[in-house]
């Protein structure tokens, strides 16, 4: 982990209440897809932890949903603004276990960390399927971006306004895959857990204090030990999770 000053390159709305922000700065601390950054915002005491959607040597892309005062403030920021960011937090996804044809399942704002993971897996020569679950058509983002990576993309909407009507599990149940990776809300995780056929990795969300393992604010029990979502997670292997 490192504290760095990043400059906003762009900050734009890409779907209903969903924004994409590109930040430029030193990204050397990021080592795996599925890690997150923790952003200090002027006037707010706690930092905002947000997963990395994509990164290269000198930029980070994040996608966030406006849900409260902090993210409302973020949506107002513009290019050229500077942000104090802790970079390289969390364990991230382990791609070595994916097998030949992994499936990636993202629900709502759980979609972003799937993007860099998809890129990584495609680069490793894997045949990747992606299921993107949204509530409604207006909230959909990144469908085309996943397609251009070369993944097979399925979209579901709860209200049936686009793609398959229903939930990610309505697609997942008929799919063949070697392994799974997922990020999204807890009810989606539970639905996946009830039908999934292979090993896999879940990326959890929790209210955090520090984001780097100091405060024990985001502790969670696993089958073997107590862990901190921010430092020992946010990605947990299916086998260790206590539901």
């Amino acid at each position: 982990m490192k504290q760095e000053i990043f400059e906003i390159v762009s900050n734009k709305k890409i779907a209903e209440n969903i924004y994409e922000m590109v930040l430029s700065g030193d990204t050397a601390e990021i080592t795996k897809p599925g890690q997150f950054i923790n952003i200090k915002l002027e006037g707010f005491f706690l930092r905002r932890p947000i997963s990395v959607c994509d990164f290269n040597e000198n930029t980070i892309t994040i996608i966030y949903k406006v849900v409260g005062n902090g993210t409302e403030f973020m949506a107002e920021l513009s290019s050229g603004d500077k942000l104090d960011v802790l970079v390289g937090l969390g364990n991230g996804f382990d791609t070595t276990k994916s097998g030949d044809c992994p499936v990636l399942i993202g629900g709502g704002v759980g979609v972003p960390p799937m993007y860099n993971l998809c890129k990584e897996l495609v680069n490793e020569g894997k045949e990747v399927s992606v299921i993107l679950g949204f509530n409604t058509k207006k909230e959909i983002f990144y469908e085309e971006k996943f397609k251009s990576l070369g993944a097979k993309v399925y979209v579901t909407t709860a209200d049936g306004t686009y793609g398959t009507k229903g939930f990610v599990t309505d697609v997942l149940k008929d799919l063949e895959y070697s392994y799974f990776y997922t990020c999204g809300p807890l009810p989606m995780f539970k639905a996946i857990e009830s039908i999934v056929k292979t090993s896999g990795q879940y990326s959890f969300e929790e209210r955090m204090g520090c984001g780097f393992g100091a405060c024990m604010g985001c502790s969670c029990k696993t089958k073997y030990k107590n862990i901190r979502i921010c430092k020992d997670g946010p990605v947990l292997e299916r086998e260790v999770i206590v539901w």
Partner: peptide, 13 residues
């Protein structure tokens, strides 16, 4: 959890 909440200029744990 949740064990953490934000306040103006502070936090609750």
């Amino acid at each position: 959890t949740p064990r953490i909440a934000e306040t103006p200029n502070g936090m609750i744990n």
